[in-house]
Nucleic acid binder design. Structure first.
Lengths: 133, 133
DNA sequence: AGTAATTTTGTAATCATTACAATTATATAT
DNA sequence: ATATATAATTGTAATGATTACAAAATTACT
């Protein structure tokens, strides 16, 4: 994946900060909060401002190359995977994993005549690692 | 439903404020925010404090008679329906409806050996009313 | 190079929520 | 019934995430 090209294809000028922030999202795939992105990149980009992280993620979401995950209140997380999928959060280690969703299984037959534009599925529990130790 | 008894059965002393707050949740079933509960009840209970609304809802959740719904960041909503179910939010009128969930259909086969304790399903789109006008 | 447009930055403002201590109300024991 | 202990409610201040905004820096265009 050529990140500058990918940004440009989505109508986003590939500034240095934008490239680094998207690179972080895409390589780690760890559903970070704004604060984690900022704390990780700030030592490498000394001038980085948290406002830039907010601005950039907002732009990424508008342009459709990033999605948000809000499982717990008070912490919005970001995901470079934008195809529809679900999330599993381990409430011991805190890790969030992407899970495939068979959306058609979710089709709710009991509400008629609604148009569903977005589907959020969040499972919360204990992951294999935390269960076995 | 006798609310004082219901609270007492769940180990909650039925104070006046608690009764009124649960009554609001249970009768309206409108998935209110703390602010909406406060603004609605404050004129009728002049001494009511927003902290009491927060404290009370926190207690209700701990005791298992209320659940939280976090669809959008920055607004936690509360629901007197605690059996597992999903939510549909209309992004035009903002209304949130409970929807039945066939949870077993959601069983994710691709992640093995996890223990799922909670399932959140949120659909977002346009409701019938907003679609037809 | 010179000007305009865009991006980044830092600070201040906002808003939901929590912490905390004082007051009020309720329950218990005498 | 009164005193005392316990619990609930309240108001204010603190916290923390996010947004608003204007200045500075960078980039694009002529």
């Amino acid at each position: 994946m050529n990140i500058p090209n990918y940004l440009a294809e989505h109508d986003i000028k590939p500034s240095y900060q934008r490239i680094r922030i998207f690179e972080y999202l895409y390589q780690k795939m760890n559903h970070p909060t704004v604060d984690l992105i900022y704390k990780t990149l700030a030592p490498e980009i000394p001038t980085l401002s948290k406002t830039t992280v907010y601005n950039t993620l907002k732009l990424f979401v508008e342009k459709g190359i990033t999605s948000t995950v809000t499982i717990e209140q008070n912490e919005v997380r970001y995901d470079a995977l934008v195809e529809e999928h679900g999330h599993f959060k381990c409430n011991i280690c805190g890790e969030i994993k992407d899970i495939p969703l068979e959306i058609e299984k979710l089709k709710i037959s009991s509400i008629k005549n609604i148009s569903v534009e977005q589907t959020q599925v969040h499972l919360i529990g204990k992951c294999n690692k935390c269960l076995t130790q």
